[in-house]
Computed example of a mutant assay.
Amino acid sequence: MRKRIKIFLKIACMIAVVVTALILFSYYSVELRTRSRVYDNIDELPHNKVGLVLGTTKYIYGNTLNPYYVNRIDAAARLFLKGKVDYLLVSGDNGQVEYNEPIKMKQDLIEKGIPEDKVFLDYAGFRTLDSIVRSREIFGQEKITVISQEFHNERAVFIALSKDIDAVGYNAMDVNCKAGFKTNVREIFARVKMMFDLALGIQPKFLGERITIE
């Protein structure tokens, strides 16, 4: 019985070591590769034709505004009005009739003074990989500026570089540690999953006909 317990504990320790190594490798590989490509300072950010705004739900806990969403919209509008991008591509989930992230983002950007004809919609940005790959395969962009929070930008830019897309990220304001705790924990495992997706060549859920941004 004791021998079995020892074997079990040894296997459990080995699994724990492997999982920890995967987490550390995934997390810090992303940070190291993208460190020079994500920007807080808008003046240092290079100009790109298109800014890709990564979607998230507008409301949480019923009717409470999601600070991640609010800050991304603010950052996207700031980039456009500063002349750092010429168009905005808003990419999000439209998997249900009553749930449409891109439309909400476009409406809020227009309210902030962005011309309607400068905002393009990607209705099939179900996850970050989909949004990044579709920006090239559907919308024809070889260079993009990704707009989200820093942790998300790092992962998105890493995906883009792995797919031979020349990407930089502009960091929207983050949320406080308490409000963002679950999101930050989830990001750790999202990076591990991303590594597997890239290794396995996982493709977007939907592609479709090409759309010209001009």
Results as ranks from 00 to 15, higher is better:
1 M>Y: 13
2 R>M: 15
2 R>G: 15
3 K>Q: 13
3 K>M: 12
4 R>L: 15
6 K>V: 13
9 L>A: 15
9 L>E: 10
12 A>H: 00
12 A>K: 00
18 V>G: 12
18 V>I: 15
18 V>Y: 14
19 V>N: 10
20 T>E: 03
20 T>W: 06
20 T>V: 07
22 L>W: 08
25 F>M: 07
31 E>P: 00
32 L>R: 09
32 L>G: 06
37 R>Y: 15
37 R>K: 13
38 V>K: 08
38 V>Q: 07
42 I>P: 07
44 E>F: 06
46 P>S: 05
56 T>K: 04
56 T>C: 08
57 T>P: 01
57 T>Q: 11
58 K>I: 05
59 Y>R: 05
59 Y>P: 02
59 Y>V: 04
65 L>N: 13
66 N>I: 03
68 Y>T: 00
69 Y>D: 04
71 N>P: 04
72 R>I: 10
72 R>Q: 13
74 D>V: 12
77 A>N: 09
80 F>L: 14
80 F>G: 10
81 L>T: 04
82 K>Q: 09
85 V>Y: 01
86 D>F: 01
89 L>W: 05
95 G>Q: 14
95 G>K: 12
99 Y>W: 08
100 N>W: 08
102 P>A: 00
103 I>C: 03
103 I>R: 12
106 K>S: 10
107 Q>A: 09
109 L>G: 15
112 K>I: 07
112 K>A: 05
113 G>L: 14
113 G>N: 14
116 E>Y: 13
117 D>E: 13
122 D>N: 10
122 D>G: 06
123 Y>R: 08
123 Y>V: 09
124 A>E: 10
124 A>H: 00
128 T>W: 06
130 D>T: 03
131 S>M: 10
133 V>L: 14
135 S>H: 11
135 S>F: 13
136 R>M: 06
139 F>S: 05
139 F>A: 03
140 G>D: 04
141 Q>F: 04
143 K>S: 09
144 I>S: 01
145 T>P: 02
145 T>Q: 06
148 S>N: 05
149 Q>Y: 09
155 R>N: 10
155 R>H: 10
156 A>P: 00
156 A>K: 00
157 V>R: 00
157 V>E: 01
157 V>M: 02
159 I>V: 13
161 L>F: 02
168 V>R: 01
171 N>F: 04
174 D>E: 14
175 V>L: 11
176 N>I: 07
176 N>S: 13
176 N>D: 15
179 A>V: 11
182 K>H: 11
183 T>F: 11
186 R>S: 12
186 R>E: 07
187 E>A: 02
188 I>F: 12
188 I>E: 13
188 I>N: 12
190 A>Q: 13
193 K>G: 02
199 A>I: 10
200 L>A: 15
201 G>T: 02
201 G>V: 01
203 Q>V: 07
203 Q>R: 11
206 F>S: 07
206 F>V: 09
207 L>Y: 15
208 G>W: 14
209 E>K: 14
212 T>P: 02
214 E>K: 13
